[in-house]
Amino acid sequence: MQLTQATEPLAPSLEESLVDIVVGSTQLNRLAGVLGDIDLPHAVMRALGTLDEYGPLRISDFARIDRCSQPAATTLIGRLTEAGLATRTKDPHDSRAVVVTLTPAGRDRLAAARTGLGSSLAAHLPDFDPARLARLQQDLNDLVEALKAVTTTRR
């Protein structure tokens, strides 16, 4: 009779952990859309967030970052400019190109939507440990900054 020794489960690989984090972030984002009290369409919120994070962008760069087609980016940016949330100006380095910039109204609208999102999600998690959320936020920020550093060196 051979006795088998119980073994601890193997820790997930770096790749598996990163996939799980990306999938979890996507699920959290979808749940936030369902549970959050936001009156902005997801695409508009995402576009405002992209312009807030990256600053002024050419439409082609916006499309690459947002992973959409240039015609889709042009349509979305058109909606933002019509609403006064972004402006389109000629690229000073290439008169054929357009640069899109978040307006103060766009920045305010994004901040208000994010605040509303945080408030409505917090209402669904009244007993969730704030210190745990703070650790999660810090870990996520560290991961994002590490990936941004790699992205910057690859360009």
Rank of each mutant, 00 (worst) to 15 (best):
Leu3Asn: 12
Thr4Pro: 07
Gln5Gly: 06
Gln5Glu: 12
Gln5His: 09
Thr7Glu: 09
Pro12Tyr: 01
Ser13Asp: 06
Ser13Pro: 00
Ser13Gln: 09
Glu15Gly: 14
Glu16Arg: 05
Glu16Asn: 02
Leu18His: 05
Val19Pro: 10
Val19Tyr: 11
Ile21Tyr: 13
Val22Asn: 09
Gly24Pro: 06
Gly24Trp: 08
Ser25Cys: 15
Ser25Asp: 15
Leu28Pro: 08
Leu28Ile: 11
Asn29Tyr: 15
Leu31Gly: 02
Gly33Gln: 00
Val34Asp: 06
Leu35Arg: 05
Asp37Cys: 08
Ile38Val: 04
Ile38Phe: 00
Asp39Val: 06
Asp39Leu: 03
Asp39Phe: 00
Asp39His: 09
Leu40Ala: 02
Pro41Met: 02
His42Lys: 13
His42Tyr: 13
Met45Val: 10
Arg46Leu: 13
Arg46Cys: 12
Leu48Gly: 03
Leu48Ile: 04
Gly49Arg: 14
Gly49Ala: 14
Thr50Tyr: 05
Leu51His: 02
Leu51Gln: 12
Glu53Ile: 15
Tyr54Ile: 11
Gly55Cys: 04
Pro56Ile: 03
Leu57Ala: 05
Leu57Trp: 09
Ser60Arg: 03
Ser60Asp: 11
Asp61Trp: 01
Phe62Gln: 01
Ala63Asp: 07
Ala63Cys: 03
Arg64Leu: 15
Ile65Pro: 02
Ile65Gly: 04
Asp66Cys: 10
Asp66Lys: 13
Arg67Lys: 14
Arg67Cys: 13
Gln70Tyr: 07
Pro71Gln: 03
Ala72Arg: 13
Ala73Cys: 09
Ala73Asn: 01
Thr74His: 03
Thr74Leu: 09
Ile77Asp: 05
Ile77His: 08
Gly78Leu: 01
Leu80Arg: 02
Thr81Arg: 05
Thr81Tyr: 03
Glu82Asn: 04
Glu82Tyr: 00
Glu82Val: 10
Glu82Asp: 12
Ala83Ser: 12
Gly84Tyr: 04
Leu85Asp: 02
Thr87Arg: 02
Thr87Asn: 08
Arg88Lys: 15
Arg88Phe: 07
Arg88Tyr: 05
Thr89Glu: 09
Pro92Ala: 05
Pro92Trp: 05
His93Pro: 09
Asp94Ser: 02
Ala97Arg: 09
Val99Lys: 11
Thr101Glu: 08
Thr101Pro: 07
Gly106Cys: 09
Gly106Glu: 05
Gly106Asp: 05
Arg107Ala: 14
Arg107His: 14
Arg107Glu: 12
Arg107Leu: 10
Asp108Asn: 12
Arg109His: 05
Leu110Ser: 08
Leu110Ala: 04
Ala111His: 10
Ala113Cys: 00
Ala113His: 01
Ala113Trp: 03
Arg114Trp: 03
Thr115Asp: 08
Leu117Gln: 01
Gly118Arg: 00
Gly118Trp: 07
Ser119Glu: 14
Ser120Ile: 10
Ala122Gln: 04
His124Leu: 01
Leu125Lys: 00
Phe128Thr: 05
Phe128Ser: 06
Phe128Glu: 01
Phe128Arg: 06
Leu133Gly: 10
Leu133Pro: 07
Ala134Glu: 08
Ala134Asp: 05
Ala134Trp: 03
Leu136Trp: 14
Gln138Asp: 15
Gln138Gly: 12
Asn141Ala: 15
Asn141Ser: 15
Asn141Met: 14
Asp142Cys: 09
Asp142Thr: 13
Asp142Val: 07
Val144Gln: 13
Ala146Phe: 00
Ala146Gln: 10
Leu147Ile: 11
Ala149Gly: 01
Thr152Lys: 14
Arg154Val: 15
Arg155Phe: 13
Arg155Gln: 14
